[in-house]
Design a protein around this nucleic acid. Structure first.
Lengths: 181, 181
DNA sequence: CAGTATCCTGTCCGATACTG
DNA sequence: CAGTATCGGACAGGATACTG
């Protein structure tokens, strides 16, 4: 993300917000390792081939952002392990969606990793659906719409969302501005 | 990744593969604009506040990668529009998942954009489920497993995926629980 | 083992200027 | 309007060396 933490603006594009957390190249890869049960510095390093300085920086960012928790698992010398917070865990769908797309780009024989049912060990095909109705949201039956904090420009373009509690009529300024450094 | 396109190795982590396409900061933001119906250079520029050189570079990469198609919509002077390819469209779940997570990080009043049912205009909560069974895949009932191309190191760590028959590639119409939109 | 510190390269990215 | 070309800054990221 261009500069670094620019998050928490008044109004923000959710995509920018998300990218502020996981926009860096290594971040999702590290997170994936953690989801797989790895917890330690050298494990990440070996699995990913990332340099020590970068790994240090990324882990720190992850911890600062509240996605990972760093805690000592032994004293003298003090050693830490990195574990997911609830917030970090909530990123799993993103990881899975991205991995699924990546796999779709690879020939089946090239797939090094697939998502399986832990019980049956059968490969699954993850799809996004509306939690309320179960309908797939990839078609054109679903669109993005202006939310409560949409700028007026945004609002012009998009129809309003549902029966708004409509705290609208607020100011403006652009949403969807990329983070400045 | 690091150096840019390093894609198409023999074995590849699907996440790396995906990030090779959409790992750059601006890429997903541009794609989102396209999903919203924008097609032209200046529209992207205005919406995103991206510099011309970067926009040019990103659009070119997107076109080279086959996510966007560039086609002239007028001659003299020749002007182009950028439209999604099928491949580009297939990224929608990733975008939606990421946006949903971003929104979850924002107070409801800060949300500038939400996903709604195009018909009812009611906001939806997208969740990832197994296409075959409809079960949510965010819990621990689903894990990543070694695929056909897993390295030996990877294979040591992960149990294999479903037993060979996996003829799943063949016809066998999977009953998609969720109806098409 | 788990980092920290330093140096260096590549490139992401914006700003500006120019073109058909 | 839709870019191309060039410049320069900031930082991602690797390599190496060092520490407790």
């Amino acid at each position: 993300m261009v500069g670094s933490k620019v998050r928490l603006e008044d109004r923000e594009c959710p995509l920018s917000t998300a990218l502020g957390y996981v926009g860096e190249w290594w971040t999702l890869l590290i997170l994936h390792d953690v989801f797989d049960g790895y917890t330690r510095f050298d494990q990440f390093q070996e699995n990913l081939g990332i340099s020590t300085s970068m790994l240090t920086a990324r882990l720190r960012a992850l911890v600062d952002d509240g996605l990972l928790e760093k805690r000592p698992y032994q004293q003298r010398p003090v050693r830490h392990e990195y574990v997911l917070t609830d917030l970090g865990r909530s990123l799993r769908p993103v990881l899975v969606a991205l991995a699924a797309w990546g796999n779709s780009r690879l020939a089946p024989e090239q797939r090094s990793m697939v998502l399986v049912d832990a019980g049956t060990r059968r490969e699954v095909e993850p799809v996004l659906v509306d939690a309320a109705t179960g309908r797939r949201v990839d078609g054109d039956g679903f669109v993005f719409a202006a939310g409560p904090a949409a700028s007026s420009a945004f609002r012009e373009r998009y129809p309003e969302a549902a029966p708004g509690p409509a705290g609208d009529a607020s100011g403006e300024g652009r949403t969807r501005v990329p983070p400045r450094s």
